[in-house]
Nucleic acid binder design. Sequence first.
DNA 1: AAGTGGTCTAGACCACTTC
DNA 2: AAGTGGTCTAGACCACTTC
Lengths: 238, 238
Amino acid sequence: MRENIYLSIYNQLTNDIHEGTLQPGDKLASEHELALRFATTRETVRKALGLLSQNGYIQKVRGKGSFVLDVSKFDFPVSGLVSFKEIADKLEQPTRTLVYQLELKRPNEYVRKQLELEPAGLVWEVVRARVMDKERIILDKDYFRSDLVPELTREICEHSIYDYLEHELKLKISFAKKEITVEPLTEDDRQYLDLHQDTHVVVVRNYVYLDDAQLFEYTESRHRLDKFRFVDFARRQS
Amino acid sequence: MRENIYLSIYNQLTNDIHEGTLQPGDKLASEHELALRFATTRETVRKALGLLSQNGYIQKVRGKGSFVLDVSKFDFPVSGLVSFKEIADKLEQPTRTLVYQLELKRPNEYVRKQLELEPAGLVWEVVRARVMDKERIILDKDYFRSDLVPELTREICEHSIYDYLEHELKLKISFAKKEITVEPLTEDDRQYLDLHQDTHVVVVRNYVYLDDAQLFEYTESRHRLDKFRFVDFARRQS
DNA sequence: AAGTGGTCTAGACCACTTC
DNA sequence: AAGTGGTCTAGACCACTTC
């Protein structure tokens, strides 16, 4: 591959915005001028600006130019594949993960169906509680196809499984579907979460697909109502 | 503008996928071949395929080709700016809207702040309940900047305010930020919703921006827990 | 070696905004 | 009329996959 000019333009401009060199409301240099400055062509600059626009950094207005948006408005986990670790890191609060179960097993019918698995297929089942302020507020149940994730250890589960999958196993996560509902408590919720007068939990079901469009993980993330927050940033497609 | 070749390619291919001419798992013709077929260039074809990929229709794999995904998995309101009317239309269930309030007024401090309004600014306040199966399950509170939305009528509110804004007032909605939390009931919830033993509602706060990055609407959509469902489709950015 | 998608070039014409 | 972003052309070289 080449050195990826458009990504380096993107990175430079996002840096300028985060550092305040470019302020909300500021007008970017024109595409023509940016092309000169970065010694490239307009189409390559446009690719960088397209990314900036998609990610909420700028607003493009035909005939006028591109304007810097207030990114601080959108700094919480923007819609996407955000793992607990990433959120926890952002919050700068002490968090902990308790691993209650880590097992290679035959999944039950429901999970088998969710993962579109053949009857003989095995999965890694991981049950973890996420602790903040000394309370277990999220119960994560993960199911990974064992043909794609051959090995999992307690150490990996206590940190970030995603780090391991992406950096060690080199799995390329491509897209995910999240489904959010509110459901009555289950026995597991009562056992593994620190509840107060709660009668329900927020359930986030996550279906994660690889590069080749193969479904490889199903996760159920069960949140205490009072600690749940989800932010979605949606851009009207052109 | 030209005839927009890439959009017509996009539309033809999504049609083929929805009609089943292209089945999940099928491989698309190569970019080179599509360019020949549509009498255009590869870059223009790539723009169409980029849109297809972004919207979950295909999966691009370098060196191999583009593959049709199973769109039926993702047919519920995909993350984006989905109004109640669009969802209701999709559900094919009889739905109704009750307008409880429609007023041009000085907003309270909270709404003023949400809308980043100057102290003298007026807003249209609309309070509506959404009825399904004879029960009021969603309470929508909308606040529109009166400088951008000068007139609103009961008739408009009973149907789709968005239709009116986009097609009559020609406002161009550009992007929106959604924030989902679960909160204890308020007095209004008790008054305007048909609740059972509920103690909480799901609150979806929606901040809608125009083309020029101006915030023009703040909406609070309060859902009965048992009827709430939110689907988010997130694509890993290349 | 041949086919695939990813990046890039150096132009062109257009619609819209500003003056 | 000049400046802006939106679309498009006709190529090029590259990395990756398949044979």
